[in-house]
Design a protein around this nucleic acid. Structure first.
Lengths: 346, 346
DNA sequence: CTGAAAGCGCTTACAG
DNA sequence: CTGAAAGCGCTTACAG
């Protein structure tokens, strides 16, 4: 590896101090415009590339932000990731991506490791089952924003969709168009979205005077295969009744739809299927699925904005009151509204 | 921010030198087992977290690897990304993700910036139109592996699928099942995959004694909307002939399929539609599309393995022969075989 | 406006 | 087996 040009090289070539070079680079006021121009132009000519690691070691601040989701291939998360990456790049931050595969242990190990690299902040859709990872962030005073899922209603910074309302809107739509027998294919327990969407489902039933039947709700339905199997189970269970299905996600809904169509059932004539998430990609299928639209890109983008803002405010406070230890910044809670997205056919 | 525990703190507490602590941490042979155990246990007790930035500054080697794709929401890339992330995490590397949006200028700016953070290596699916970004990597002697697309056949390290064969297999299948009128919806020009898939398309035509008709090939068809529009155009052009469509990707194919189905055309009875990529997610739609399967996860995983291997070999060489400057490592070229993936219906 | 000096937290020859 | 010292490339009080 040929050695790279450093500030020291430039300083020697110009017969000035390294301090002066540093000031020129960082647009410090304590420097004459002429000097600055002279230095800047040599820097450019020599193709100087700053050493970010050295800079960071001194200032103890990095531009690395970790983004932890369960699975980047899930089209829902893919959009969230894109929102995050777009905003972070624009703000000069780097997006380190990780999949926790819904495993809280993996999440914990990961976060533990992240502490070594002086991460500036973390954006995370936390796995259910344990908050060990999040606790580690709290203990180490790392700025973080929960995306999509929260842990406690009044705790942490988070950017979510109103999942109760999403479940409510979907169920209401199905009841009104397809009658009282609405099955619900739900996600993993122990996660706020699972809980809240179920609450919304129940509220819609209640509002329409329909009793809640536990057997209509299947849990742990996470992907297309699960959706396909769940549809088989539910179809058997319904025994010929006209029914409809609300799925936790569009991803699951496509699996359910496959089973039904392959078995000669028309959607929505025989069985209506509805998803949640509003994955645009899936709207290109015929017959289209209705869904509850959630602003995925915006969820990612907004959470990145919130995190960057928190990081900046902290840095500013530390500059202004270096003596004060912890900063009691108020938690940020942002909740997006879901909307009904009817396809032409369902 | 409360100061974090450093090696110095531990050294003082134990009355030994920082050097000794460092050796204990790095399992250096020059240290007695008793000492090592004593130090390790205090480290654990005090919850010591190494400062990665400092470590890196000294050793000039990071664990950051950049992954640049055009769009992480494209289900093809989503799988590639997952393959990369899985392998890199397992090897202790961090995946920095970026979208270049097929813009070579953005790619260049990005790579320029990456040089500052002492990136260990780059995995990139290069945008077409300009190789400025890649040149920067070459000039700065940064290890990199091209994923999915190559620039020159004998240059660089790359991990690809055999795109000529993919185009050939798809076209051959369509000709044999649906006759001579095979339209091809192709991607952006100036990219190896676009070029090679077209070559395969032409080879299959030739082999079957069918003339190449330029008007059957539409270019710049990149997403579902493009696919939908292209299907409209081609349907008009064919004027009632029975024809079939090979699409550059499954993503595009779903767009084409939507147009046809919405206009009352049955797939594949009236018009057969075929994709390339074999996106599993799409196989959950009915009627399923046939496709050419490419091993997406494996492409990502393998390219990450190749890169890690290159980085390790370089490090080793530098250790063994620190006097030698450049290392003439042989380029690695890996090409995966595509396979025909027939759906039950198409 | 400029610069000498200390220091960020670690690793690595080198001497003992 | 242990440690003093130099140094990675930068920033930041501080003095002039």
């Amino acid at each position: 590896m040929p050695k790279r040009i450093t500030m020291k090289d430039i300083a020697q070539e110009l017969g000035v101090s390294v301090t002066t070079i540093s000031k020129a680079i960082n647009n410090h006021p304590d420097i004459s415009p002429a000097r600055r121009r002279q230095i800047q132009s040599l820097l450019a000519e020599r193709n100087y590339i700053p050493n970010y690691m050295a800079k960071n070691l001194r200032s103890a601040r990095t531009k690395f932000i970790s983004l932890i989701v369960s699975d980047n291939t899930n089209p829902y998360f893919a959009k969230v990731i894109k929102g995050v990456e777009t905003v972070l790049s624009r703000n000069g931050y780097y997006t380190l991506i990780f999949n926790n595969n819904e495993d809280p242990e993996k999440e914990f190990t990961l976060i533990r490791e992240l502490l070594s690299i002086n991460i500036a902040g973390v954006l995370i859709c936390p796995a259910g089952g344990s908050d060990k990872g999040i606790s580690l962030l709290r203990e180490n005073n790392i700025p973080y924003v929960l995306i999509t899922r929260y842990i406690e209603r009044d705790c942490d910074n988070y950017v979510l969709a109103d999942d109760e309302k999403a479940g409510y809107l979907g169920t209401k739509h199905l009841i009104e168009k397809h009658g009282e027998h609405v099955a619900f294919f739900n996600h993993l327990p122990g996660i706020s979205t699972t809980r809240d969407r179920l609450l919304g489902y129940q509220r819609a039933l209640k509002e329409h005077g329909i009793p809640f039947r536990e057997e209509y709700v299947l849990s742990n339905i996470c992907n297309q295969e699960d959706g396909c199997n769940a549809a088989r189970t539910m179809y058997g269970l319904m025994g010929g009744k006209h029914f409809s299905i609300l799925c936790y996600s569009d991803f699951v809904a496509t699996g359910a739809a496959l089973y039904l169509q392959e078995n000669g059932l028309a959607i929505p004539k025989d069985v209506a299927v509805m998803g949640i998430d509003g994955v645009e990609m899936f709207s290109y299928f015929y017959p289209g699925l209705s869904s509850i639209h959630l602003p995925k890109f915006e969820l990612g983008a907004k959470s990145a904005e919130v995190l960057v803002d928190i990081i900046n405010r902290r840095a500013q406070e530390e500059e202004e009151y270096p003596e004060l230890p912890a900063d009691p910044l108020e938690d940020v809670h942002i909740i997006f509204e879901p909307t009904l997205q009817e396809s032409g056919t369902t």
